[in-house]
Computed example of a mutant assay.
Amino acid sequence: MLWMQQVLKQLNAGEYSTVSKVQVLNHLSDISFQLGDLYRAVDFTHQLLSLDSSHKQSQLNLPYFVKLLEEERAGNLGNEESETKQETLNSSPQDTLDYKQTLESYESLCHGEGIKLTPQRRKRLFCRLHYGNRTPQLVIAPFKEEDEWDSPHIVRFYDVMSDEEIRKIKEIAKPKMKRSRVFSLTSGSPQASRQRISQSVFLTEEEDPVIGQVNHRIRLITGLSDETAEFLQVADYGIGGYYEPHVDYFLDFDSDPLEFIVMGNRVATFMNYMSDVEAGGATVIPYLGAMISPKKGTAIFWYNLLRSGKGNHLTKHAACPVLVGCKWVSSRWFRERGQEFLRPCGPTEVE
């Protein structure tokens, strides 16, 4: 297991090898199953299929592993630790990284350890002017864009929000904020959880023109349709506030199938940093070994879904605890419906 994990780590770092990721993931899936670690077996199998959807053995293994995992969960319903793990993962077996392993990586990154931004990878990151789809507004006044990570592609935009806009949005949000909630698989609805310690609120454009200004600017930058986008969510992470590893895309729409039909999944995330943080508060991606520091007025953007429509498990991210100061962010999630011609399917499943 340790040997194969090291091989996968070096492949993810961009090292050349005659051994493919598919071969390594196949070994890891088999080893995990033999060790009785079904969470990991399912995750490695899912990763393999995201790279090679025609892999016959994995196609057979995945439903079998999932069935065993569900039986194991059913047998542990009275176990408090099992229930806590299930809620904290906030995901289906197909997209679940081993909980303990992910938390260890998350904590290491928050301590400034285990960052994988190697010199070789840094060479693939660039800065540029962002003209969007050559819209007149951005041709006249393009945004500064900086690569934070190459694959999956995560970018940072500068000077997205002015100090006055940030002040106004905070002023609107503060009296309406409540304890943030996360979706619980056990209850099938959002509820407060120790997975996320923060306050948040969704703001509509009717509340103040500044919300519409910011939303319009986000639409221009991303080039995506906002017809099915969610309202702007404003969140405040005070001292000790954090958000454990999670994905932004939905893994289960059984609670509201109509919403899935009408709006689709969360295809992309646009997150504004509305404050600097003296210590802590970084956004980290445990599976990549990436850490992105908050910078007031900037925003980061990435796609949560592959072009096939499947969730990209590599985008699982987290917010490190705030140690000194206060962290304000505002996020907008774009849904699939309306993006069919703006971000069409690629020639391959994983492109």
Rank of each mutant, 00 (worst) to 15 (best):
L2D: 15
N12L: 07
E15I: 01
S17F: 11
L28K: 00
A41L: 10
F44C: 13
H46K: 02
Q47W: 02
D52E: 14
S54I: 04
K56M: 03
K56T: 12
Q59T: 03
Q59N: 14
L68Y: 07
E72N: 11
A74K: 13
G78F: 08
S82R: 09
T84G: 06
L89N: 14
S105P: 00
S105M: 13
G112W: 02
T118E: 09
P119S: 06
R122K: 13
G132W: 04
T135I: 05
F143C: 03
I154T: 12
K170F: 01
K174Y: 12
P175L: 14
S187H: 03
G188Q: 05
G188C: 06
A192Q: 11
A192P: 07
S193N: 13
R194E: 14
Q195H: 13
Q195I: 01
S200E: 13
V201Y: 12
V201E: 14
V201C: 13
F202L: 15
T204L: 09
E205N: 08
E207C: 09
I211K: 08
I221H: 06
I221D: 09
T222V: 10
D236I: 01
Y237V: 09
G240D: 08
P245V: 04
T269P: 03
M274H: 11
D276M: 12
G280K: 05
G280R: 07
A282F: 07
I285G: 00
K295I: 15
K296D: 07
G309H: 12
N312F: 12
N312Y: 14
K316D: 01
A318K: 03
V322G: 03
W328Q: 02
R335N: 11
R337S: 09
G338Y: 13
R343K: 08
